[in-house]
Design a binder for these strands. Structure first.
Lengths: 375, 375
DNA sequence: ACTGACCGTT
DNA sequence: AACGGTCAGT
């Protein structure tokens, strides 16, 4: 059975608000490490990956792994019945067909209890390779929100380009073209813009994740992306690609360099390896992928980019990248800004963009295949 | 003629906002004691009773009783032309077919004047018995609003149960079931939960209204509810009852248990009595009903539950009650929260619920027949 | 298709 | 607190 008590129902509310428009039904995979959710968006163009670490709960217990099939629209309604600062306990018996949610007001003279129906959902666990990217940009999430919203008024897509100059977001529209350039913030200058040893998803706040282990990592036996279901990069046509359920999500699969991605389900290809990350030469590591949690044991929950990291823009790149994405999705992703003040954009040419919001108790990550014709 | 000057047009604006969706046309009955409005909602399921005491006006004069037939949609529009803090004077000549409204800004350098057409409306004064109830719950109006809104996301109706445990609001829906329990707030503990002598509508703040005078009151010459049309309790089928225009609104007319439901028209049954109020024993009185204003001359305008009474929940009960109501109506009633910080729920099994908002210058009360099959 | 109500944002 | 936008109901 599962029993997890969250100090603030608001965390869950914001998380649902962030993804409910993208995904309507999904399995919350619960195990002793925490709760994860991975799903393709309704149109199979983007992939959403959510993690809530067990350690982020006030109390957490999950005897055995169990998937909770939830209709996010229903869960959103039920969560609307909680105040942001209510304590929220979610419980589900093994094999249960209902999820029980209890909200306790701080004042404690109000207790609300809800039982929500669960459903069976095909859980095609998606394989999300943990790869290295040619560029990582960390910026205030509000800034990212503002930029994609502004540009979405002009056009359908945006070209994101990271160069020595900084990061540029440019969109061409019928009536007008727009371009926003963010330069590295002064205080951060030294760190970024320089060749970085390895660009992996950052775990902590503004600190490059320890790449070491990764370097030595398996160099990618086949150097190929696994084939689980996922957003396929190349497939991306003019419009975003629609990935099939059974495809593998090769974040940047055969992409520029290679990263492996084993997906969870098959596990067979797990042994793959990927090799040099873009320009740099660190051999990338692999595996951990979506279950990022394990990345480095991640005991670091609270210290990440969570709420307010440093202000400003931090740019790290090993190679110039230029990719084009659908603004509609980016605008959608940017809703997660309510969860965390900083956002990380990870890019390599021809590989799906990773937009990552790391907060105290976990993260929300979005993968979006680039439109072709960008390079 | 009528001439009444209100210190704040905002009072009228909020009152209209609270009831305009429920009632589109109604008579404002003006007499020397003040202005009252009583009407069945458009679908004849609920009854609304509004009182604006003469003493609550900055200036008030009404030579003879006169009904002002008003289209509330029109009045709402006209009132939108006033700022909340404007002084508002309403005037109507005898037999006039227009209502004159003058708004004077505090600064006095702005005077706006409007004339709104009046209409003839069948004034079937509704008889609202002033009865006793088995349970009275007083709580912050925002809390009530929150609860009924939350539950309305899940289901159509709510079961309200008052027991030693507190007051529970429970609703079952397609996707989820919900239940909110409010316990008596600690500081209030002693007062409530004990056998109350009499549970009548509270007039002041948290004080049981003196029932005395009412006891002696005219026991109802005819002892009946007036014969106006009302919500008939029993009629309530699965869905709320639709009371006929000519029926009498026997809120819980005769006593909690037996409530007669004579249909108002006959008036013959007037002799009924109400008597034992629930558990207690005060003979109920009658008449005053809706014109509650007279209840005790009520000079107390400002001291009532008006804006913020004590915070928290106060529960008084003489018997366990369990009733089911349509959330749609309760959500509608809860709009009155803008007028007053506290709301009173009065209930007896199988009798219409009374939701009462008492503010400085009067009150807005709603009566809603329970759905059957509850309790 | 139009009007009204409700929710969210500024 | 007010205005605008979105969604639902008639």
């Amino acid at each position: 059975m599962l029993e997890a008590k969250l100090a603030e129902a608001g965390t869950l509310k914001k998380m649902l608000d962030a993804i409910k428009e993208l995904v309507t039904d999904a399995n919350f995979e619960c195990n002793e490490e925490g709760i994860t959710l991975q799903a393709m968006d309704n149109s199979h163009v983007a992939l959403v990956s959510v993690l809530l670490e067990a350690t982020g709960f006030k109390r957490y217990r999950c005897d055995r792994p169990m998937p909770l099939g939830v209709n996010l629209t229903s869960l959103t309604k039920v969560l609307k019945c909680a105040k942001d600062d209510d304590e929220c306990t979610i419980k589900a018996a093994d094999e249960a067909d209902v999820l029980n949610l209890v909200y306790e007001a701080k004042s404690s003279d109000r207790i609300a209890e809800y039982d929500m129906k669960l459903m069976d959902i095909d859980s095609d666990t998606l394989g999300i390779p943990d790869t290295e990217y040619d560029a990582r940009v960390t910026m205030p999430s509000s800034e990212f929100t503002r930029i994609v919203r502004d540009l979405s008024l002009l056009g359908e897509s945006v070209r994101i380009e990271v160069s020595k100059e900084g990061i540029r977001f440019a969109s061409d529209g019928e009536a007008a073209n727009g371009s926003v350039l963010l330069r590295q913030s002064d205080a951060i200058g030294k760190v970024a813009q320089s060749k970085v040893t390895s660009l992996k998803k950052e775990d902590g706040d503004g600190e490059v994740v320890d790449v070491d282990e990764e370097d030595e990592d398996e160099e990618a036996p086949d150097g190929k992306v696994k084939k689980e279901k996922g957003v396929k990069t190349e497939a991306a046509e003019d419009d975003d690609v629609d990935m099939d359920e059974d495809e593998e999500f090769k974040a940047n699969s055969d992409g520029e360099e290679e990263q492996d991605e084993d997906e969870g389900d098959e596990g067979s290809e797990s042994g793959k390896k990927r090799k040099k990350s873009s320009s740099s030469n660190k051999p990338s590591k692999k595996a951990k992928t979506a279950s990022s949690s394990k990345r480095k044991g991640k005991g670091k929950k609270a210290d990440s980019d969570d709420e307010d990291g440093e202000p400003g823009v931090r740019i790290e790149m090993n190679a110039h990248v230029s990719l084009t994405f659908s603004l509609k999705y980016l605008v959608n992703f940017s809703k997660s800004a309510t969860l965390c003040n900083r956002v990380q954009l990870m890019m390599s040419n021809d590989v799906p963009l990773l937009v990552s919001y790391e907060f105290g108790q976990g993260h929300i990550r979005y993968y979006l295949a680039p439109k072709i014709g960008d390079d």
